[in-house]
Amino acid sequence: MTIDLTINGEARRLDLDPATPLLWALRDGLGLTGTKYGCGIAQCGACTVHVDGEATRSCITPIEAVAGRRVVTVEGLSSARGRAVQRAWIEAQVPQCGYCQSGQVMAAAALLAGNADPSDADIDAAMSGILCRCGTYGRIRTAIRAAAQALRG
């Protein structure tokens, strides 16, 4: 079946089984490997992308569910918000192994899209589903606060 969707601002047509998880359509079908496979059951968050601006676990989202919708991966996170988050991530030296980072960055950008001045509780709630084996949660919170401040001017 052919599925039409927009990936990182570009109209794409995928000829895949409609039940194919979005993660595999992105990685195997389109070569966008920034979105990571972690657990396959939406518990770790490494596969987080934006679907119409909402943080979404791509490992359990069938491509038929995103037909006609806008999908943004870490490769396409080029908005001012996305750039602010990426800069803050580097400045706070968040990454260790890096495996969870695309999911972390995508979740942080989605949080800041809806909340320009998140509290620590807001940050913890938004980021709670993204696991970091290296335990950089304090740096993640620092980076999100810095990105929010930069966006507010």
Rank of each mutant, 00 (worst) to 15 (best):
Ile60Gln: 13
Ile123Leu: 04
Ala147Pro: 12
Gly76Met: 06
Asn115Lys: 15
Thr142Glu: 15
Arg83Pro: 00
Gly53Pro: 01
Ala107Lys: 06
Ala116Met: 01
Ala147Ser: 03
Ala147Asn: 10
Ile63Asp: 02
Val74Glu: 00
Ala116Asp: 14
Ala65Thr: 10
Ala116Asn: 07
Ala67Thr: 11
Val71Phe: 03
Leu111Asp: 07
Gln104Cys: 03
Glu64His: 14
Ser78Gly: 14
Ile140Trp: 02
Gly129Ile: 09
Ser128Met: 12
Leu131His: 05
Ala148Trp: 10
Cys134Glu: 10
Cys97Glu: 05
Thr73His: 04
Trp89Asp: 04
Ala116Val: 12
Gly135Glu: 09
Gly68His: 12
Trp89Leu: 00
Thr136Gln: 10
Ala109Asn: 03
Ala125Trp: 02
Thr61Met: 14
Asp120His: 13
Pro62Asn: 11
Ser58Trp: 05
Ala80Ser: 11
Cys47Gly: 02
Pro62His: 09
Ala67Trp: 04
Leu131Ala: 01
Thr136Asp: 07
Gly129Tyr: 07
Val71Leu: 03
Glu54Asp: 12
Arg133Tyr: 03
Thr48Lys: 11
Thr73Leu: 05
Ala110Trp: 07
Thr136Tyr: 06
Gly103Phe: 12
Val74Asp: 09
Gln101Ser: 11
Val49Lys: 08
Tyr99Met: 09
Ala84Trp: 09
Ala110Glu: 09
Thr73Gln: 10
Gln101Glu: 08
Cys132Phe: 01
Asp120Leu: 03
Ser119Asp: 02
Ala143His: 12
Gly53Tyr: 08
Cys47Val: 08
Thr142Asn: 10
Arg83Ile: 13
Val94Ile: 12
Arg133Trp: 08
Ser79Leu: 00
Ser58Lys: 05
Leu77Pro: 03
Arg57Lys: 13
Val105Phe: 04
Ala46Leu: 07
Gln149Gly: 01
Ala107Thr: 15
Gly103Pro: 03
Met106Ser: 02
Ala88Trp: 11
Ser58Gly: 02
Ala65Pro: 03
Gly82Lys: 09
Gly76Trp: 12
Ala147Lys: 10
Gly138Thr: 14
Gln149Arg: 15
Ala107Phe: 04
Ala116Lys: 06
Val85Lys: 07
Ala107His: 01
Ser58Phe: 12
Ser128Asp: 11
Cys134Met: 00
Tyr137Ile: 11
Val51Met: 07
Ala146Arg: 15
Ala67Val: 07
Arg145Ile: 06
Asp52Ile: 02
Cys59Tyr: 12
Ile123Ser: 02
Arg69Asn: 06
